[in-house]
Nucleic acid binder design. Structure first.
Lengths: 160, 160
DNA sequence: CGTGAAATAAAAGAGCC
DNA sequence: GGCTCTTTTATTTCACG
C-alpha cells in the first residue's frame, strides 16, 4: 500500500533505521551508498508519507521495574456493539496495556500488559480490567521468558 | 532492578525518549527542565547501564506491505528438553517472527508473526513453522484490527 | 550535581548536474 | 534522481560554582 514504491535504497534506509534510529544522516548515507542530500530527502519522504511513524527509545522492562509481562485474552459481550466500542476506548487509555488487538479465535481481544510484579497484576486485573464494561471472560498468559524480543519488521519481501 | 535508582529527571528523560527517540539533547533538556550538559550525562548513563537498550524507527506495517499480523500459540513436545531449546533457537532466527515468549497457559510459546497476506502466512505456516522440531500443536489468532499500537512502557510506578 | 561557554561536527536548504 | 556548497544548528568538552 505504499503510495510511492519503495526501491532498494528506501529498503536499506528502513532496515538501517530500524536497527539504529539515531543514525546521523551522514552515517546513514554512507551505509546505504548514497550522498547525504538525497538520503535525507528520502528519509523525509518516508516520514511524511507515514512509512516511518516515529522514532523511539527501546527500554529494558526489567531495568525500569516492569518485570512481569502478561498476554491477556479477553472476551466481551457480543450482544451490544456499543460494549465492544467502549471496551476499545477504555482499554486504549490504560498505561499498563502496551498493545491491544482485536483477534480471531477463542478471545475477542488480545492485550499485552506490563506490570512490576504479580501484585501489580492482581491490582490491574481486579481493580481495572474486570471493571470494564462488557467483559465476559479473561485468560491470563504470563510471559515466563522472552525468547525473542520485539524485533524489526522483515523487509525481504520488498523486491528490487 | 536498576543499579542506580532512577529519579524524577531520569524518568522524564525516559518518557520523552520513548515518545520521540530523535529528540536533540537541547530539546530534551528543555522538556525535562535541565540544562544540556547534565541531561546528556544522564542519557549516556541510562544507555550504558542498559536501561535504554537502543533507538529504533517505528514503521507502519501496512505501508511496507506487511498487512497481516498473527499471534501464534505453539505447543511443543515436553518429553525432550532439547526440543524446546532447539525450538527457541530456530524460532528466533525467523524474520517473520517479530516477538516470541515462553508463556503459561494453553500454549507453550506465543509468537507474533507478520506477513504480507494470507498466502504469506500459509507459506510461513506450512513451509516453516510446522517443520520445526517438536511442534505438537499450533493455534493461529489473526489480528483483525489494531486497537492500541505498540506503546511506551508506563513509568508511573517509579516514585519520586 | 549542576551551570555556562567555546570548538567541533552535523543537519538543512539553497541551486546545479 | 543524485551531488556540492553554504548557513544554521546541535553535540561535545572543559572550566567553574
Amino acid at each position: 500500500m505504499p503510495k510511492h514504491e519503495l526501491d532498494a535504497y528506501d529498503r536499506r534506509i528502513l532496515e538501517a533505521l530500524q536497527k539504529n534510529g539515531r543514525l546521523t544522516n551522514v552515517e546513514l548515507a554512507e551505509q546505504i551508498g548514497l550522498s547525504p542530500s538525497p538520503c535525507l530527502r528520502r528519509v523525509r519522504m518516508l516520514e511524511e508519507s507515514g512509512v516511518i511513524q516515529g522514532y523511539e527509545a527501546r527500554l529494558a522492562p526489567d531495568e525500569v521495574g516492569l518485570g512481569l509481562t502478561v498476554f491477556v485474552g479477553v472476551k466481551v459481550e457480543r450482544h451490544h456493539e456499543r460494549d465492544a466500542d467502549q471496551f476499545r476506548k477504555e482499554v486504549s487509555a490504560l498505561p499498563e496495556v502496551i498493545a491491544a488487538h482485536l483477534v480471531s479465535g477463542e478471545s475477542d481481544f488480545l492485550l499485552q500488559v506490563v506490570v512490576p510484579d504479580l501484585r501489580g497484576y492482581e491490582r490491574f486485573l481486579l481493580g481495572t480490567l474486570l471493571k470494564l464494561p462488557g467483559v465476559k471472560d479473561i485468560r491470563s498468559n504470563f510471559a515466563i521468558q522472552t525468547v525473542k524480543p520485539q524485533s524489526p519488521l522483515p523487509l525481504d519481501h520488498l523486491g528490487k
